[in-house]
Structures are given as structure tokens and as C-alpha cells.
Design a protein around this nucleic acid. Structure first.
Length: 115
RNA sequence: CAGGUUGGUCGGGCAGUCGCGGCUCCGCGUUGACGGGGUCGAGGAAAGUCCGCACUCCAUAGAGCACGGCGUCGGAUAGCACCCGGGGCGGGAAAGCCGCCGAGAGGCGCGAACCUGCCGGAACAGGGCCACAGAAACAAACAGCUACUCCUCCCUUACGGGCGGGGUAGUGAUGGUGAAACGGUGGUGUAAGAGACCACCGGCGCGUGCAGUAAUGCACGCGGCCAGGUAACCCCCGCCGGGAGCAAGGCCAAGCAGGAGCGAAUUCGUCUGUGGACGAUGGGAAACGGCUCGUUUCCACACGUGCCCUCCCCAACCGUGGGGAAGGCCAGCUCCGGGUAGGCUGCAUCGAGCGGCGCGGUGACGCACCGCCCAGAGAGAUGACUGCACAGGCGGAAGCAAUUCCGCUGGACAGAAUGCGGCUUAUAGACCGGCCUGAGGC
RNA sequence: CGGGGCGUGGCGCAGCCCGGCUAGCGCGCUUGCAUGGGGUGCAAGAGGUCGGAGGUUCAAAUCCUCUCGCCCCGA
């Protein structure tokens, strides 16, 4: 996923975490909030409960890679945060993709790629 | 070859597809949050942060004190308490089959390579402590032993002797306690004893010689006869150390607040110095309690309180009220200093750099030559999928066996964040050596 | 990146600086008494590798070194 689709600033994270809606899944938590930007921005996070630095990095890579083809299908003007949970360290890419699919559907940000 | 032990190297490979970050080049009817090409892109520990440096800022006349660290010898290094090579004192390791015991099984002792802890003041500069036990824990006398002497009783004609008790003196052999009790064995000696004296042994100190750069070792001689342990307790001696750290530091700098100026409008309203102190309330954050509420703590360029309250006049005891004067505030713009968010830099090719080869050194390491330029993020880039071999494991088949074939499985610990050197800790497995012991062959 | 602290029965803490004593205190737990029963009360009792490893010492929870885990502070 290219950096231009990434959520990077600390203030952005704070705003989404505070006033966004959250949707939980055993592997991932999705937090979404509308923004005034003309694009979709995604941030990923992994806390210390996920594991050591290797596992945290792996979890974030999985999330970015799984999210990459989905970004185009989401309506513009949304900021998303994906928070990794401990189970993600043993999950595969397809597991992660399924999890994200269901989360986005529940959030009403249904990808249109299967059309 | 087997067993033990130890050091080093590597720690996944190749190909394809998709993708990410840095640098660089190119393209354009769409100069953009664009498209494409090239190139580079994690570790031996990147980890822990236990030491040492570089670098930066602050402080600083010099010296000393305090505090902290280090402390065998020599070397290496920019530097380092931990590196390299030695020395001393321990602890472990167990091959060996040497010695002793045993009928044997076996036991005890001796013991290679190697691993490992410690190292100034041999605790006579001084202080402290050494629980319990014990008389006593550093210079002592409980029992005991010995001599002299006193008292009671007994034996004896008497001299004298004996049991018990007391006093004075000597003693450190014996006993018991303890982790530890002031060298050991044998003798001389004595009332009894004792390094009091003698021989040998152990240990200490001094001297000489030899080996070694030295620590130290060995040999010989002499000495006084012998000194408890603890400085990972204080202390003493020597050496070293100013403090903080890339969240160091430098540059730029929204917004808000502050200052200066320009300037519009109205005399309507409102306000009144500087600096500080405090926190009932309000705002924000967090925690706690079962509750729309409360408590506690914290934060600010927020707010308030009261001290205080521009000057003059009048009323009044004060609070205060009335009137006047001066100044400020109430739109916008420009500029100024500090500086928050944020950005750039430090910081990512020129270094105590990496690779190769040669030489010197036992080694840490050094020198010479040749070649190379080698991650640089900032919510944090190196990943995903597929295939193929390669080690390994499991199962099956063939074969006397070595081995071969097939299927399944499957590759640890772990992710740079200013950069180096050392240390420590985690780590599946693979490969290559060194040393010791044993067996066999030539 | 730097600094500081903590780890001791089930829980919360002493003891550590200056080594020795039975590792102590409160709550909790178990048993018994008392009550019709519960609580309260009274009496008795169990329960601790002092986070782990190594060292110094005659002797270590305490001193030294390494290590593991947790918490707090500084932009």
C-alpha cells in the first residue's frame, strides 16, 4: 500500500480513535470515521499484547498487504484504522483478507470489486 | 575410528509473479498525491543497555575536599572493569590405570585435555563486626594439673600422710564449645608445664644466586619461633572521573497570546500600575467508586479571588457613592522578539569503514598493497504467493548390508532508528579445525 | 534514548542501609468453642524455593555480579 493512502499524523490517529465508529473481529479491529480528504486513508497499529517487535511488524505488514487491493473499492473521504489482535500472528494472508472483508461490509464500506 | 573437550565459519539457496521504502534517470495533448526504467535495501546478536569512546550542548582561573569507579604482571587499543598472553590462590571435570584396601563386586587416594571464580594494603596505620555455644572471639583462665598455705575430719607416739573445702601463685599439656581457640611430630626440660630450648616438617619474613621484561618460580642461607577471620564492612594507598545526552543540538516557523506602528469611527459604553500569592468555581486529561453524580491527582499562553486598586474634588467612621481629568480597550493591516504544533537538519558514501591478499606477532592486533562505496524509516520500508532443488525428521518399499526410490512433514532466535568497540543474554541446524584419552593399521 | 523504583505465605506490606535470632504484621484460609443458623467474638493451626543463577563469607531475604518480569518519570 502506497504511503499516499496511509494515515500518518498523530492528530489524525487521535481524531479517528476518539470520534470514529469501531467494529471488532477476533483478528482485527476496524475504526472508521469520515474526513474531508478526497481519498481513503488507512492506518495500522499493533500494541504490545500482539507480541515482540517481529510479530508486531508482521501483523502490520499482513494488514497493509491485505488492505492493498481493497482500497480502490472504498468510497473516498474515509479514514480507517486497523488494530491488530494477538491471533493475527498465526494467521495467513487469506485469513486476514476474509476478516477485513467482513469488517468493511459491516461498516457499510462494501468494496465494489466483485461487481 | 570412538569418546571427551574446545575454537571458528554460516545461519537458509535459486527462479517467477505481485507489492513497499531511499537515491537517481527518463517521459508528457492530462506537470500530478502522475507513469516508467535503473540501482540499493536488516543482524550475529540489529536485543539487553552492563562498560568504554566519537559527536553535541551547558558549566568551568587553578588546586584541593567530598562522592563514585577501578586495582596480579606484561601487552593490545582512539579508548575500555569484561580484549590477548602469562602468574598466584581456590573450585570443578573425569579419561587413565599408577598406588592402597578387598576373595570378588567395589571403595579410597592420585589424576590429562579442558572449564570456571577471585586478585592493592600477605588485615603489625586505625576503627567496627564475628550470631548460638563457649571461661575466653584477640589476647582469655571454666573444669583440670602443679606448688605453697589455711580450716574441719581421719591415720600415726611423733615427723609426716590422706579425704573434703577455701585462699595465693604458676600453667596453657588435657577436656568440652564452635566455622574459627594462638603451628604439627618427636625429644630436652620442669613442681606441673609451655618454642622455654633442640631436630625435622609446615608457614612467614629477609638476603643471595639462577630463569623470566615483570608478576612469579626454583635452589641455598639466615631470622624470630608463629602473626585468627572479615576490606564484594568502614577505612588507607595508587590511578581515573565536570554534568547531561541525538528526546543532545542547530535552522525555519502556522495558530493563539504579547509588543510597536499605521489607521477608521465614537465621545456611547467599559476598564485602570508592577510584581507576586492562593484556589471556592469553570474547562480539559486520567484514576477510583454499583449510579445522569461525586472524590482525588495532574495540566494551561484559561479563569477567578483578595492584598492592592492612575490622579484631583465633594460626601462619609469604613465599605462605598457622586463628579471631573488623563490613558487604555472594543475592525483591519504592516512590522518585531521569543517560540508551541509542524517541517528541515544533525543522518545515511569517506568512516578508529568494508572485502581480498601478503607480511610481522603465540595472540589481542598492527603494517603494506589492490579493489569497493555498502540500509536510512519517521504510525516507522525488506513482505506475500507459487515452483524447484538442498540439509534434517517420520512412514513405506527393495536389498544380506552400505544404500536407493516414493510419500508426508519441515528451516531457530529475532527487526536497524546518531555511529562505533567490548560484554551479557536468546538461538533449529549445518560445516571446518585444535587439544586430550583409548583402540587398530602402516 | 535516558533516569528511577518494585518483586517476601492467597492478597497488601515490614525486615535489607549496619549479614546470624523462629522471616514478622494485618486481612484471608482451616479446625474447634459459642449460636437454632449466619455474622461478630474466643482459642488453636496450616501455609513462604524471600523472582532466577552464580559469587564473597563460618553464615546471605540482606553484600557483589549477571539475568527475568512489572511499574513510574522525562519530548
Amino acid at each position: 500500500m502506497q504511503r499516499k493512502f496511509r494515515l500518518t499524523r498523530s492528530d489524525d490517529f487521535k481524531r479517528v480513535r476518539q470520534s470514529g465508529r469501531s467494529y471488532a473481529h477476533p483478528l482485527v479491529v476496524l475504526v472508521a470515521r469520515a474526513s474531508d480528504q478526497p481519498r481513503v486513508r488507512v492506518g495500522v497499529a499493533a500494541g504490545r499484547t500482539v507480541g515482540n517487535a517481529v510479530y508486531r511488524n508482521r501483523a502490520k505488514r499482513l494488514l497493509r498487504e491485505a488492505m492493498r487491493p481493497l482500497v480502490a473499492g472504498i468510497p473516498a473521504g474515509w479514514d480507517l484504522i486497523l488494530i491488530a489482535r494477538p491471533g493475527l500472528t498465526t494467521a495467513t494472508l487469506t485469513d486476514t483478507r476474509v476478516a477485513l472483508d467482513s469488517l468493511l461490509r459491516r461498516a457499510g464500506l462494501t468494496p465494489i470489486h466483485e461487481a
